[in-house]
Amino acid sequence: MATTTEEAAAQATDAVHPMLPGTDASGSAVGMPQLVFETFPNQIFWLLVTLVVIYLVLSRIALPRIGGVLAERAGTISNDLATAEELKLKAKAAEATYTRALADAKTEAGKIVAAAKAEIQADLDVATAHADAEIAAKTAESEGRIGEIRAGALEAVNTVARDTAAEIVATFGGRADAGAIDAAVAERIKG
């Protein structure tokens, strides 16, 4: 009796809340919901709708746009690279010009230095020659004066020696004639 009531109750519940395909009375899945074939037409239908929508969105809007952006970017990059190459060549040309200018300036500077050096050398030579001449003149003059002084000194020595000799001879009581004394002194001084 009890069982029939339960069954009846269960049937009543079923009638009011029919079960979802693939579930038991508690609403849990029985086995794999993947294998409940009642749901297949529904899934396949909505999948096809989804795929068609995705295909239309992609092929009409997204893919041409992204492809265009990528192509544009590739174009921009290759353009920029070409420009960079051109600028590089220009920079190289500028560098060559600069190097040439630098070399020219260096040569020019060398020439100026050489000219200045030559001028200075010439001035120096003239000044040196002038100084040499002056020095030679001064030396000659000094030598003349020294010779004079030496000659004077020699004369003085002779006179002093003769006088001294005459005085000494006189002191010893001798008489000496001037000629003998002169000869003796001259001999001694020479010796």
């Binding site: 809340h17 029919p18 979802l20 395909p21 579930t23 794999m32 993947q34 749901t39 529904n42 239908f45």
Partner: peptide, 28 residues
């Protein structure tokens, strides 16, 4: 396995090929 159950979005238990289900929702 309950997470894989296909359920109608707006109540009911009948799943026809056109019924909007959680499949519809998540594919959308």
């Amino acid at each position: 396995m309950d997470q894989f159950l296909v359920r109608p979005l707006f109540g009911g238990t009948e799943i026809n090929w056109y019924t909007p289900t959680n499949v519809t929702l998540w594919m959308g």
